[in-house]
Simulated scan of single mutants.
Amino acid sequence: MHRLAIYDLDRTITRIPTWTPFLIHTARARAPWRLALMPLGMVLAAGYLLRLMSRGRLKERMHRLMLGTRLAPATIDDIARDFAGWMVPGRIHPRAVQRIEADRRAGYRIVIATASYRFYVEALARRLGIVDVIGTEAVVDASGAILPKIRGANCYGEAKLAMVEAWLAGEGIARDAAHIRFYSDHVSDAPTLAWADEAYAVNAHPPLAALATARGWPQLDWQAR
Rank of each mutant, 00 (worst) to 15 (best):
H2E: 14
H2Q: 14
A5N: 08
D8E: 06
L9V: 10
D10F: 13
T12C: 09
H25C: 05
H25A: 11
T26M: 08
A29V: 12
R30L: 14
R34T: 05
L40K: 07
L40A: 14
M42N: 03
M53I: 15
M53G: 01
L58P: 03
L58Q: 08
K59W: 07
R61N: 04
M62W: 00
H63F: 15
L65F: 12
M66C: 12
G68Y: 06
T69F: 04
L71C: 08
L71Y: 10
P73T: 09
A74S: 12
I76H: 02
I79V: 14
A84P: 03
W86G: 02
V88H: 03
G90N: 10
H93I: 13
H93C: 09
P94L: 11
P94S: 11
V97C: 06
V97S: 01
I100C: 02
A102D: 12
R104G: 11
R104D: 03
G107W: 02
I110C: 02
Y117P: 00
F119Q: 02
L124G: 08
I130G: 01
D132T: 13
G135K: 08
D141C: 02
I146S: 00
R151I: 11
N154L: 11
Y156N: 08
A159I: 10
A159L: 05
K160P: 14
A162W: 00
V164S: 04
W167Y: 07
G172Y: 00
G172V: 01
I180D: 01
I180Q: 00
D185M: 05
V187G: 00
D189I: 12
P191H: 11
P191I: 08
A196I: 09
D197A: 10
Y200N: 06
A201G: 14
H205F: 06
H205E: 15
A209T: 05
A209C: 11
A210Y: 04
A210P: 03
L211E: 15
T213Y: 02
R215T: 00
R215G: 04
P218D: 03
L220I: 14
D221H: 05
Q223H: 09
